[in-house]
Design a protein around this nucleic acid. Structure first.
Lengths: 210, 210, 210, 210
DNA sequence: GATGAATGAGATTTCATTCAT
DNA sequence: GATGAATGAAATCTCATTCAT
């Protein structure tokens, strides 16, 4: 009996967050009204408030949900690659596969809303930083390992390398959000080229200098 | 006399937009109230409405103002560099010098608000895309030139290369907005390394393959 | 079988009214929600609505319940006293014994809610006046009798004498409701003194005058 | 300039509290809606909220206003009377003159609402107790003085005597609130009789006993 | 009979905008 | 030109009541 109830509860919460998510991607957090969320969730206001204390709680929940899925898994799988290059390519493919596909534009636009909220809302920022930190740690381990294998310049700050990787991903999501027709494949090719040394084909600086 | 008037008008508009900008960076566009903008601008509601038709107009104006300064100039100056590497390094220094310094956190956070609005507001998106396109075109010329000099892999889509450059910049602004204490210098080093071929120090793939 | 049912029905109603009574004393009629009553009664909303048509009905019932007990009885017993003084003292003791004891604060506070409702709610006022009238009539008989015995000034309006007696009771309940630590015994002493002539110990006015 | 503004502010606040007072007397605090208060005050919702933070604040203010007038003055004037009897009679006349007259029913009913709120609302209770205490202290001085003159039984607790006086007043207000047609004059006569020794005309108890 | 999730009207409160002074 | 009090539509949230299970 408690099980049914709990399943029901979770299902309803999901239903509401999903509906809210759509609305948020469409109009942003604050311009979205509860009425719109209720309509999208096909529920009355009273029902929604049975599952969430406030609109703020729905926003927080929606922020929480974003990409809650398995960055960890991606990292774990990537690490099994035989060499750094293949690992990076696998990672790039895995991450960038998310920016296309059904629902991706909604996700990408929602992410922008989340970022804006993060800049402004301490609670949301807290959760966000925490999650980022977890992934960043995983990534950093990978970077350090690549440096130990002498694949990445050991002189580079590993943290900053991770930041650059994030940037290449997040920055592209921004562009997809603004223009969903942006082609992904050639971008991923560039990213792989950057990370695996085939981007720059010109002369290298005289190592005697610097 | 019309000149004085016009100067005055512009000055007041600037005063209001500046005030609004601060508020927006602090709370986001929509949660910011006109009262807050008025207070920050040290003007009455009536006065503000003499210069702007609506809050929406202030938002649009604030979005317009963002980095209105001289991306073009930076590009023009960069192009004068003797070689691609120096040009890229100059560009990186120029752009990333903006993400620090006084007022930078406000700028970085405001940018997140702008992005969120862009995802959601057709008018703002129009202006934004236009501006981006202008800079992107300038950057693209640089990239194509680098490819012609055989400094960048000619097989890469120049548009996507520009996107990657944008991403490295925007993605970092995102991180600075979330955590203003993020150090910039090591990140810029990584960016330069990525773009000028000193990032990847491992083996290159067998050109016979692929 | 109808009897069992009826007993059950009454028991349930009582349970609900008792619960409501507690809530009402705590928060007042209108701020109390049905949910709170249900929780206090340990019943579901549906169950409560099986026994009462509406919240209004519960309020009415709670008002009805107040002191439903036996003012009449007190009067009947008092009347058996050998003289007016003893009768008044007995009455005072009987009535004021109610303002202390367990549950008395709840009662006293609930009474204030009732009075407020009476001022505002025609239905409740009707019931209230009726009940008051009954007791007032009983009291009045006592007063008239005392006047006939020449114990009370025959020049006084008996109705108003009754009102004064009520006032001494109700006004004290008000004070106990506001501050439950108010001591009862010395107050009762004063009341008895007032009613039996030992309050005023000064000179009496010159009967020649007035 | 600040003076005009401040006067205006006070005037508006008064206007709103007065309007609210009417509504409260009519329907009670909680069933009264802001819309009703706004309509009664002939002001828009927005305007009302410029002067009061919340409905709760209006309730508090309305409670505060109740009888803010000059109980102190009455006491001060009463004290000048040549003897206790005349003083008591003066006091009684002064106080009870308030329970009739235009607007008195509104006042009397509002008082019941206040009492109910006092039982339930800590903030309101605080203010209420404080004010009561002030008057009670004044009254007590009078009572003690009467005891020193040997007009009141010195064996009685002066605090309780004050309480009895309050009760005779408050209890009558209750009755007037419930039935505004209750005649005041004969009641006042009874009160005066009680306090000045002409109520009980029967035998006094044998002082040898007790 | 009992449950408690759902309803939806309605309450309080906010805030962009206007306009008399 | 400037002010800021006033407006009132609309937002969030509550809660008495119903009804499928």
């Amino acid at each position: 009996m408690p099980k049914v109830s709990e399943q029901h509860l979770e299902a309803r919460k999901q239903q509401i967050v999903d509906a809210a998510f759509q609305c948020f991607a469409r109009k942003g957090f604050h311009p979205t009204t509860m009425q719109e969320i209720c309509a999208e969730a096909d529920l009355s206001a009273g029902a929604v408030y049975r599952y969430f204390e406030s609109k703020q709680a729905i926003i927080a929940s929606a922020c929480d949900v974003t990409q809650e899925t398995s960055d960890q898994e991606l990292l774990a799988r990537a690490i099994e690659a035989p060499d750094t290059r293949q690992m990076l390519q696998g990672l790039a493919d895995a991450f960038f596969s998310r920016v296309d596909g059904p629902d991706a534009t909604v996700q990408n636009r929602a992410i922008l809303q989340l970022w804006a909220e993060v800049a402004v809302n301490d609670e949301v920022r807290g959760t966000f930083k925490e999650r980022e930190a977890t992934i960043a740690d995983g990534m950093r381990a990978i970077v350090v390992e690549a440096q130990e294998r002498d694949d990445f310049d050991v002189g580079l700050d590993s943290q900053s390398v991770v930041r650059a990787m994030f940037a290449l991903y997040d920055g592209f999501r921004l562009q997809k959000a603004i223009d969903p027709s942006t082609p992904t494949a050639p971008y991923v090719t560039v990213v792989k080229a950057l990370l695996t040394g085939s981007f720059w084909t010109g002369a290298m600086p005289d190592p005697a200098k610097t």
